[in-house]
C-alpha cells in the first residue's frame, strides 16, 4: 500500500514535470492566459454555453482550433474570428497548455430526465465506446462528461443538422432534441457525481 502510494507520487511528479516542459513552452505562457477572459481561469468555464477547455485533450483542441481557423468547422463564429489571430504554432501551444490543466466539471443546473431511459440511450448509441472511460475521451475524441451543458447541446444540435461534418456523430440526425437534452443532462450530472 505504502509502496504503491510512493510509486504513484513519483509517476505524478515525473508526469507533471514532463507536462510542464511540454505544455506549450514560452509561446503558451504568453498567449494562453488571455483565453480565460471567456473560458475562466485555466479553462474552468463557470457558465452554461462557453465550454470547459482546461483538461480537454490536446489533440482534440488542436484539431478544432485549426479547423476553426481554416473555416472548416462552422460551430462557433466567435472562435473562428479568435483563431484567425494566432499562428498554427500558437494554437498548438495553447492547446497543450490547456490540456495540461485540471478539468473542472460544470456546476450548471440541469433538468431531470428519466434516468434509466437516458442510460439506455447512451448505451445504445455507445457514446462511451469512443468517448472512453465514461466520457473522458482520448486523443481527438473530446471529454464530454462534465462539459458545460448549453455548449454540449448546441454542438450536438449542429451535428444533428449536419453543420459539422463527422461520420461518427452522423447518427444524431435521427435522435430527437428531447433525447439530446436528456443525454446532455446526464453527462453533466455524471461529471460532478463521479
Amino acid at each position: 500500500m505504502k509502496r504503491s502510494a510512493f510509486y504513484l507520487l513519483c509517476v505524478f511528479l515525473f508526469a507533471s514535470i514532463g507536462a510542464w516542459a511540454a505544455a506549450g513552452g514560452d509561446t503558451a505562457e504568453r498567449t494562453a492566459k488571455t483565453c480565460a477572459g471567456c473560458h475562466g481561469t485555466y479553462g474552468a468555464s463557470p457558465g452554461e454555453f462557453i465550454p470547459v477547455i482546461g483538461g480537454q485533450h490536446a489533440e482534440y483542441l488542436k484539431k478544432v482550433l485549426l479547423e476553426l481557423k481554416g473555416k472548416k468547422r462552422p460551430h462557433s463564429i466567435e472562435m473562428t474570428l479568435m483563431a484567425s489571430g494566432y499562428t498554427d504554432e500558437q494554437l498548438e501551444a495553447i492547446s497543450e497548455w490547456y490540456a495540461d490543466k485540471k478539468w473542472a466539471d460544470s456546476k450548471v443546473k440541469v433538468n431531470e430526465y428519466n434516468m434509466s431511459a437516458t442510460v439506455s440511450l447512451i448505451e445504445n448509441y455507445s457514446c462511451f465506446g469512443c468517448h472512453v472511460d465514461n466520457g473522458k475521451g482520448e486523443g481527438e475524441t473530446p471529454a464530454i462528461t462534465g462539459q458545460a451543458p448549453g455548449y454540449l447541446k448546441n454542438v450536438l444540435m449542429k451535428y444533428k443538422a449536419g453543420l459539422i461534418p463527422s461520420d461518427e456523430m452522423a447518427f444524431l440526425k435521427d435522435v430527437s432534441e428531447v433525447e439530446i437534452d436528456a443525454m446532455v443532462s446526464y453527462l453533466t450530472e455524471l461529471g460532478r457525481n463521479r
Binding site: 480565460a36 477572459g37 471567456c38 468555464s45 457558465g47 452554461e48 462557453i50
Partner: peptide
C-alpha cells in the same frame, strides 16, 4: 447567452 456567460467567466478570472 455568450454575453451572460462571458461575465461569469471573466468575473471568476
Amino acid at each position: 447567452k455568450h454575453a451572460v456567460d462571458w461575465t461569469l467567466s471573466i468575473w471568476s478570472d
